[in-house]
Simulated assay, not measured.
Amino acid sequence: MMLGLEYFSFEEQWSPLFFFFMAAVVILYFYLVGPWKEKHAAAAPTVTGKQKFQFISAAALFYLAQGGPLDLLGHLTFTFHMSSMAISYLIVPPLLLLSIPEFLWKAAFGHSFWRKLRVFMNPIFTLLAFNIIFSLYHVPLVHDYVMTHYTIHRLYYVVLFVTSMMMWWQIVAPVQEWARLVDVKKMAYIFANGLLLTPACALIIFADSTLYATYNDPQVWVKAMGYCVAGDPSYLLEKFNGPSFFNIMKPLEDQQTGGVIMKLIQEIMYGAILAYVFKQWYKREHADSDDDLPNPGPAGHAGASS
């Protein structure tokens, strides 16, 4: 058995409509940083190859996590579900923020209208909004409800993605003049994010029993699978004996592995960003210190000689 994907159709694995939507987004991006920029922002710096690669990577990862095979696998095992969540909300947002050039951010959010909503970009608000919504999602009753009610599922994921972008904005700050955090405050913000995410991961990792009916109750599982397969998903129960058919681990091990993966990816992402921010701060501090040192000129040398 190869993860169970062989039992599903090409359309169920690859979500062609979502693929074409993401392809359209990529085409729009290249139009905006190419022909549109030449007409409306010719003086702006040229978008780098690195930024274009970051955008394509973000789009590809988001498609795989939310519409490709990883999305389907995330409905079969909790481990893949948490992998999808980590990619969607911890890896894709910073890539996306870094890939979009400053002139596009200013064109989109530079209007005076957005100033009325600046309160929602307060670092404390964005910190709490993302972590509360993300942690609340992993409360068993909430998780199973979201996974089995498709409209709520879509809306919750949209809100989660938006709040993740708002949270990462404080760290990445693609428009420097709009940044609210610098240096030590930014490092404290990153540390606080890791701290606030820990209880949800701990709940999953250290639970002594399975928490989510979506991955343990065949009736709940088959209802959740309606998000991935066309028509009435009840045929899945006739063909398989529930999610356990696809899982190579015991249910509790699958749950714990998912929690470990989420925490591990979070630690790697936040750790790497924290190290980068610290390095930049350290360089600036030492550059300022060097500027304050006396500069021995000709007079200084003459005085020393005499």
Rank of each mutant, 00 (worst) to 15 (best):
L97G: 14
A86Q: 08
I91D: 02
P101R: 08
H75F: 08
I87F: 07
L90Y: 12
H81Q: 08
P101G: 12
R118V: 10
H75Q: 04
W114S: 03
I100W: 08
W105N: 06
L97D: 13
R115T: 14
A108G: 02
K106M: 08
K116F: 11
W105M: 09
L117I: 09
L96A: 15
P94Y: 00
P93Q: 11
S112C: 00
P93F: 12
F109W: 01
S83N: 10
T79I: 11
F113P: 00
H111Q: 02
W114V: 04
F109R: 01
H111N: 04
E102Q: 14
P101I: 13
I100G: 07
K106V: 12
L117M: 15
W105E: 05
L97C: 13
F113N: 00
L97I: 14
M85P: 07
R118S: 15
L76E: 05
R118N: 15
F78P: 06
V119Y: 08
I91M: 07
I91V: 15
E102I: 06
S83D: 03
L90I: 10
R115V: 09
S88W: 05
L98F: 12
F109V: 00
P101T: 13
A107N: 04
F103Q: 00
F80C: 05
S99L: 11
H75E: 03
P101N: 10
F120R: 05
L95K: 03
M82S: 09
L97K: 07
L104K: 01
L95A: 09
H111R: 03
F80T: 04
M85C: 08
L96S: 09
F120I: 15
G110H: 01
